[in-house]
Write a protein that binds this DNA or RNA. Structure first.
Lengths: 341, 341
DNA sequence: ATTGAAAAGAGGTACGTTCCTCAGATAGGG
DNA sequence: CCCTATCTGAGGAACGTACCTCTTTTCAAT
């Protein structure tokens, strides 16, 4: 005998199939006493609904949109690739996916993009955008329109998002500090580079990094964050001058994008070999940089997980099902030369 | 319009539904030319079979057994837990799972257990057993009986297994060496502990460890492997005497089980604080050891992945579907205090 | 031209669920 | 007591696929 079906629980509870269906789908028209009988039968038989048969019957279509930053960001591109892979595999069954790309540094453009979404043709949204008051308001409006909303990669903690899928940035920063502290021999200074500390992730990574650095590695001094604000020429200038000015420099921690520019600047400086370089996100460029020993470690999050997790959460929110938090916790991965995937 | 269905491709190809079905399920009785017409229609319409509807219709039940080592091994227990979790979640839908536990060091008992399996009530098998000639023969017999077989965690490379789900042990050993080399300050000796080098995994980890150690970290000397053969008292004696005899000891690499015994021995020696300790598998004990800074890093594989991957592969082998190798490659995870899950 | 096997069609039932209609039962208020 | 509103029952049609049987067509060998 296989799993119990709705027929079995109808028999067990001594009611008709229609009543079982009404109870299971919380439709009106059933007496309290009858509801109790049915739920009791469900429990005693250990009935679990066959989601696939259910979705087949109800012709369920989940329509989700993923809002990702546009531009040359390799990370966003690999996310997009993971999304397309999920789409073609059975992970995204009965799911229609749209990808919307927005300029990451322009809150107004983001809000405009969010407003232009046809909410009646959408069940859920995964957002990878920086947190601003405007975005928070837009999220509130989208929630009012009945959408399921998850924050992806970077959280929107004070908005009405349903869930956050991504890693804890503070822990990621702490992990970077631990690696830096253990990898560097002797003492010296560490250069910290970020696109901008206005981004919540970078700020939190920096917080975590400093916390571990000061408590555990007093032999190292983390320099103030160098922000390059998307200007690659500026980044190169700053890096070259920093490296030239500081002969006690032993490490570089790059908290965000622009790793290729940073690496080429370090190569030009001629001191790349002596430095412990840590970056985030395992892009193809970082893959080769690890293989060539130019980067000591990459702190990454598995984009496949992110996407699958976001899809699971969105579906569950749509169906008003509980979310299994432990499964959705994305791990902070450490990638070295020898454990490259 | 939703996805194309079999009806659509029947219409498109100008054949009947039955013929489409015969082609899709590779049943005989269709001319080459007609097959071509159907496959063409499939491609032009972008038809993808609705696996859930298909499994629903065919009342497919996958009956798999997992053969795991019995005893106190925390790793095997966490695998079992992951298996039970998969069973209760939708990952294992339409799948019936049995867990068989065998004494890991007794090839005859393992073979006896494998022989006692009722192959007519089983579609596939995941084996986590050491490779011996007897096991290879047993695998051959089980393959002849028509079962799908994957090797789990430790490979059975010269057997007729269909696939290996687990990490490359050489790469895992290399990763350990890289961590040891970068974590240790200065020079000294490294103690390497294993249950037994007769186990293929341990041997390969040792090979990888030594390869990186000699090529990259000439400041460190990896001592000959200490084997404790399941005898915990012996392990404690050896560790205590090694630590006492070697004042240049800077690190310990534990390649297999018995980490708790090893740790308590090191604690007794009073030198745990000075040593860089690396172990495998993130058991609850290693979790706390990491949190308390007793262990510097744990090299782990995600048991959830292992299980899901094994299930996917078994199902695909049963259905004679291709295996998407990239997805089934299990990553070597590095767990430190700051990125504990 | 006849035969016969292989190929293709036609039509059905089933899987577990949803959702619909229509009819019958039960309750509470008048 | 009847009347109405609310419950409940019975049955059926779908969803996309699998698989079965029973015909009909095709086509090459005789």
């Amino acid at each position: 005998m296989g799993r119990p079906t709705v027929h079995d629980i109808a028999k067990e509870a001594g009611v008709s199939l229609a009543t079982v269906d009404r109870v299971l789908n919380a439709r009106p028209g059933v007496r309290e006493k009858t509801i109790a009988k049915v739920t009791k039968a469900v429990e005693s038989l250990g009935y679990v609904r066959d989601t696939y048969a259910a979705n087949l019957a109800r012709q369920r279509q989940y329509r989700f949109a993923f809002v990702l930053p546009e531009g040359s960001s390799q990370f966003a591109n690999s996310l997009k690739a993971a999304l397309q892979e999920a789409y073609s595999s059975n992970v995204a069954d009965r799911t229609h996916l749209t990808i919307v790309r927005v300029p990451p540094q322009d809150p107004h453009a983001i809000v405009r993009a969010l407003k232009s979404l046809n909410t009646s043709r959408l069940d859920g949204l995964a957002l990878m955008v920086p947190e601003t008051p405007q975005v928070r308001d837009a999220v509130a409006r989208l929630k009012d329109a009945g959408l399921a909303i998850v924050a992806l990669v970077s959280d929107l903690p004070n908005s009405r998002r349903d869930f956050f899928v991504g890693v804890n940035s503070i822990a990621a920063g702490r992990t970077a500090a631990l690696l830096m502290g253990r990898f560097v021999k002797g003492q010296g200074e560490v250069l910290v580079v970020a696109d901008s500390l206005r981004s919540r992730d970078s700020l939190e990574r920096r917080l975590g990094f400093d916390a571990v650095m000061t408590s555990d590695y007093s032999n190292l001094k983390a320099l103030p964050t160098v922000e390059w604000h998307g200007d690659e020429a500026r980044m190169e200038r700053i890096i070259l001058s920093s490296v030239a000015a500081r002969d006690r420099l032993v490490g570089v921690y790059s908290m965000g994008a622009g790793n290729m520019t940073m690496l080429s600047a370090l190569r030009k400086s001629g001191r790349l070999g002596e430095l412990v370089v840590l970056t985030h996100e395992l892009t193809p460029a970082m893959h080769t940089a690890l293989a060539q020993n130019e980067v000591a470690a990459v702190i990454a999050q598995n984009v496949g997980h992110l996407v699958r997790s976001a899809l699971r959460v969105l579906r569950n929110v749509c169906d008003e099902l509980p979310i299994f938090e432990a499964q959705e916790r994305v791990r902070i991965e450490i990638v070295l030369r020898e454990n490259l995937p």
